[in-house]
């Protein structure tokens, strides 16, 4: 019996070891190191680090630039949720329940932008949407409108950057949500039709709740991945400007770490971001993973 248990333990270790090792060395240890660094004042290469205790964290909450960046991050999250979650969800509901042909074609086409690198996407959009000389601006001028100069307005820049991210992510999220909707038993839908229940009521009262776990998963994914994805367009087009108007907490961390070399500040920001994400993770596990009766965790 003992050798069986031993064998079992060895097997478990063997199966988990590669993943555990790589994640430990390349992800978990760095975050611990970052936590350590967040209590120092350093520029990454000076031989000595200055211990400053909680000062970096205090700066995060008192520095007006940081406050602006944190506020922007909320704006980003809101916009990303609408563009990358609500809209794909609505469209997926339309495709699943309101049309009966060409579903496959739409799926195929919607997904194509997801194949692209965001660097390419940012370059193409920046070119097309040039507020003075891009094709959209010229076209609008022909019909009497002017494209607002979104590059020098923080709010509009955020909208544009989210749209670029949305272009790439829309198809992926759409497909995820559609799959979730597709797993709702057809007999429920049929029964509702027989009883002449209007489609909207059916969706609101039955489909959405049944799809909750997939929806929540995509919701969390939208926030976490969205903020990471939108980094590339920010880096390519506005570099966080004008005056941090389009910067968010992730980009600001990068600015502090690799442009200003304020490693301590950057580390504190990174830890803050991570803590916020962890809270989202906790909610995700509670509402998504916990729903599955067969789930092992």
């Amino acid at each position: 019996m003992n050798s069986n248990k031993q064998q079992h333990r060895v097997l478990t270790l063997l199966y988990l070891a590669p993943t555990a090792l790589i994640l430990l060395v390349f992800i978990i240890i760095p975050i611990i190191y970052t936590l350590y660094l967040s209590f120092f004042d350093w520029n990454l290469i000076a031989p000595t680090k200055n211990f400053v205790g909680w000062r970096n964290y205090l700066t995060i909450f008192t520095d007006p630039v940081n406050q602006k960046v944190l506020l922007n991050t909320l704006g980003y999250i809101g916009l990303l949720l609408v563009l990358n979650f609500v809209i794909p969800y609505v469209i997926s509901i339309i495709v699943q329940f309101f049309i009966h042909k060409m579903q496959g074609v739409y799926k195929i086409i919607f997904f194509i932008p997801s194949l692209f690198s965001l660097v390419v996407g940012a370059m193409v959009f920046a070119w097309i949407m040039n507020p003075v000389s891009g094709p959209i601006a010229l076209f609008l001028r022909q019909i009497g409108f002017t494209l607002p100069n979104w590059t020098n307005s923080g709010g509009l820049a955020i909208v544009m950057l989210c749209l670029i991210t949305n272009w790439k992510v829309f198809g992926y999220n759409f497909v995820l949500l559609l799959t979730g909707l597709g797993s709702i038993p057809q007999n429920l839908i049929d029964a509702a039709q027989v009883d002449h229940i209007p489609k909207w009521r059916l969706i609101w009262d039955v489909v959405l709740p049944l799809n909750k776990s997939m929806a929540f998963y995509v919701l969390i994914l939208t926030i976490v991945q969205g903020l990471q994805y939108v980094f590339t367009p920010i880096n390519v087009i506005t570099q966080g400007g004008p005056y941090y108007g389009s910067s968010n907490v992730l980009y600001h961390t990068y600015l502090n770490a690799f442009v200003l070399y304020k490693t301590g500040n950057a580390s504190a920001l990174a830890i803050l971001t991570f803590v916020i994400f962890l809270i989202l993770l906790f909610l995700e596990i509670k509402f998504v993973e916990g729903r599955d009766a067969d789930a092992p965790i």
Binding site: A126, N130, P131, V132, S133, N149, N152, I237
Partner: peptide, 12 residues
């Protein structure tokens, strides 16, 4: 005078 990032300005 135009106020916009470098690439956009030169393209204009």
């Amino acid at each position: 005078a135009l106020h916009t990032p470098w690439a956009q300005g030169m393209d204009a």
